[in-house]
């Protein structure tokens, strides 16, 4: 691939990824203010999981991380629910893959665990239950 095109695509992708994150954060703020969401969500770009790489993955930052500001530990079902809402949207999953994301991570500001999904798994078949814990939860078991 030509180096100039690589440079141009890098800038374009970077702005598209930033637009996606900013759009999410704006909508999350509006939903929180309107009372649709009981928690304030904030999206950011993270390193992602190297095991989940695919051909479109960004070489360094390939994780789409959602942080829930709750002030308390969210339950496992609530964390799963937020992830499922994104992964059940086929168009959104496709867009995430094209923009170089390969990992979806959801966690809250308090506590030491969250969930992460391999986005590629949800491209065709829709939602399935294969999610992994980011860290060991308070019970000490690691669910793979």
């Amino acid at each position: 691939m030509n180096i100039w095109i690589k440079i141009l695509q890098w800038f374009n992708n970077h702005s598209d990824r930033t637009d996606l994150i900013m759009g999410f954060n704006t909508d999350a703020q509006k939903a929180f203010i309107a009372g649709l969401m009981p928690v304030l969500l904030q999206a950011e770009i993270s390193r992602g999981c190297s095991e989940y790489k695919h051909s479109h993955s960004h070489w360094l930052y390939s994780g789409f991380r959602i942080k829930a500001f709750t002030g308390q530990q969210l339950s496992r079902n609530d964390i799963k629910l937020i992830g499922e809402a994104i992964l059940n949207d086929d168009n959104l999953v496709r867009k995430l893959v094209v923009l170089g994301f390969d990992t979806l991570e959801v966690h809250c500001d308090v506590g030491n665990y969250g969930c992460r999904w391999q986005i590629k798994d949800f491209l065709v078949l829709g939602y399935s239950n294969n999610y992994n814990y980011l860290n060991n939860n308070s019970d000490g078991h690691n669910n793979n």
């Binding site: 759009g23 999410f24 969401m37 969500l41 994104i86 949207d89 168009n91 867009k95 923009l99």
Partner: peptide, 22 residues
């Protein structure tokens, strides 16, 4: 094809109403 996917408007309403949906 990539640009067509990227330029689609992103709808976050499902994510923002997920607790109501539950």
């Amino acid at each position: 094809a990539e640009q067509a996917i990227i330029n689609q408007p992103t709808d976050w309403s499902n994510t923002m109403q997920v607790f109501k949906a539950q």
